[in-house]
């Protein structure tokens, strides 16, 4: 996949449900690939140093800072950005809806990253429930949620309503898995 003449690479991956292809250079970061090449501006650059989580995307359903991720490593993987989180008909997904209803959005710059991280927590929790490793049903506490979100800074909301949102969503997963 490397083009030795130009020093560029071709990567093929799945972006929000669509197979895509892009030409990148060695030092292209996933954040820039998404924002500049694919022109999806919902993934936010907050620090470019892995500290704030605004640039979080899901790679194969786990949350990663796209500002510290080499685009060259995305080949063959699945990426979900905030644009891919909404439902197919464009309506708000459960995570988004819950953030809005709980007043968890103020300036909104952290919101994309928060939403994806919460989504990942829901995946993680579903996996835990399904894996039946421990025998008894796993329980997620408020502290677990806080810990999960430590890498997402928010300067406006004080996190309280974001955490409330996440807990509500987890409880829903819990109820469904009954």
């Amino acid at each position: 996949m490397k083009n030795s003449d130009t020093g560029s690479f071709i990567v093929n991956f799945n972006l929000n449900g669509k197979d895509v292809k892009a030409e990148i250079s060695a030092s292209t970061l996933l954040l820039d690939l998404i924002r500049n090449t694919f022109n999806m501006k919902g993934t936010k650059p907050g620090c470019n140093e892995g500290e704030c989580g605004a640039c979080t995307v899901l790679i194969n359903d786990v949350p990663v800072n796209s500002c510290l991720y080499l685009a060259a490593n995305i080949n063959g993987k699945t990426v979900t950005t905030i644009e891919g989180l909404s439902c197919n008909d464009g309506s708000l997904s459960a995570v988004q809806d819950s953030l809005v209803k709980n007043g968890a959005v103020q300036c909104g710059f952290c919101t994309s990253g928060m939403a994806l991280c919460i989504k990942a927590l829901m995946f993680e929790y579903e996996n835990l429930v399904n894996s039946k490793l421990t025998g008894k049903k796993p329980k997620l506490t408020e502290n677990d949620v806080k810990k999960w979100l430590e890498g997402n800074l928010c300067r406006c909301t004080g996190y309280v309503n974001i955490i409330k949102s996440a807990l509500e969503l987890i409880n829903n997963v819990e109820r469904k898995s009954g």
């Binding site: 993934t43 905030i82 209803k101």
Partner: peptide
């Protein structure tokens, strides 16, 4: 408790900030 009027665009990544 009316949710934020403009939260919809902010939670879908559609809000246009200066960086965008």
């Amino acid at each position: 408790p009316v949710p934020k009027h403009d939260a919809g665009i902010r939670v879908t990544g559609k809000a246009v900030y200066g960086h965008d």
